[in-house]
Every structure is written in C-alpha cells, then in structure tokens.
Simulated assay, not measured.
Amino acid sequence: MAKNVYKNDSEAVLKSISEMKPEYAALSKLIREAILESDHQIDEFIKWNVPAYFYKGDIKPFDPKEYKRDMLVFNTRQKDHILLILPTGAKLTNVENLLEGDYPDGRRMIKFHSEAEFLEKKSVFQQIIKEWISLVE
C-alpha cells in the first residue's frame, strides 16, 4: 500500500481562506466544511498556493502523475466564481451536470458563483465527493 505523503495543514487552509475577498471567503468556508464532513478520510493542505483536498488513507501504489490521492483543488483566480478542479473527475457520475469540462487528462471542474448556489447544490456536491472516496483503490 502507498503511504500518504501529504500532511494535514488546516491552519494554512484557514489562513488562505481568511485572505480571500470576503464573498469568496464565506463561500470557500461552506465548500470546505461540506468536503470535510463528507468523509473522515479526506484531509486538507495547501497545494499550488490554494486549498486542496486529498485522500489520507493507504492506497495501492500508483504513478504520481495519475493524481489518485488528489481529490480537489481550489482555483480562486476567477472573477465571479470559485472553481474547483477534480484531477480525476472524469471517473465520477456527473450528477445534475455539476461537473464541467471534457479534458483528455480526466480533469473536471465545478463552479460555484455564490453561497446561495452552493447551498442549493450542496447535497449533489457531497454525493460526488462520496463517490470519489468510494472509488479509491
């Protein structure tokens, strides 16, 4: 089994969120809470200077370029939304067409424009997160 080399850094994630524009900070907090409450095997740290979420348990050995441990990374550089990047999102069921894009490398994206939109789609979002966890080998 491949050991987890990522280290939890919730303090850095919370600091990163607190430094966002207020409307993005509030939305990011809601997204963060929904991710972490979806499964106890999910953890967080900073990757590429933004919040990122990963599977913290043991998994079968894999090529690091397959990103099997990486669940989701925030992209906070958008003008009117938070973009969530799922490196292996193509393997997931696109419940209510929440996942966007058709990238050859298997990435899929999720966009949230507001807290209200997120709260409306929270249960579908958490279904996708739980499915991702269920597919970890």
Rank of each mutant, 00 (worst) to 15 (best):
N4A: 03
V13H: 04
K91G: 12
V50S: 15
Y6G: 02
K3R: 12
I59V: 14
I59R: 05
M109E: 13
E100L: 14
A25G: 08
A52I: 00
Q78T: 13
P64S: 03
L99C: 10
S134N: 08
I59Y: 03
F112Q: 05
K111A: 12
L36K: 02
T93W: 04
L86A: 03
V13Q: 05
W132E: 04
E131K: 00
P104Y: 01
D58L: 06
Y53I: 01
E33Y: 06
S16F: 11
N8R: 15
F125Y: 05
K7C: 15
I82D: 10
Q126M: 14
I31S: 01
L135I: 01
I82G: 06
M1C: 06
L86Q: 01
F118V: 06
A34C: 04
R108E: 12
Q127N: 15
V13S: 09
S10M: 05
K121C: 04
L83K: 14
E131R: 01
K29C: 07
L119A: 06
D58I: 02
N75T: 08
M71L: 14
F45E: 15
E33F: 07
S38W: 00
I82Y: 14
V136W: 01
K130M: 05
K121H: 11
A90W: 09
W48F: 14
E100F: 12
S114Q: 04
S123W: 05
T76L: 10
Y24T: 08
A52P: 05
N75R: 13
K15F: 11
E131V: 00
V13E: 13
D58C: 01
D70S: 12
K3L: 09
L86I: 02
T88W: 07
S10Q: 09
K79I: 02
F112K: 01
L84M: 06
E23F: 12
M1A: 15
L72E: 05
E19C: 11
L98Q: 11
S16I: 09
P22S: 15
V5T: 11
I85R: 02
Y6I: 01
E33W: 08
K15E: 15
D70W: 08
K122Y: 06
K3H: 10
D102M: 13
I17M: 13
D102H: 14
N94G: 07
P64R: 00
E96V: 07
K130E: 13
S10I: 08
L72T: 00
G106W: 02
D43W: 00
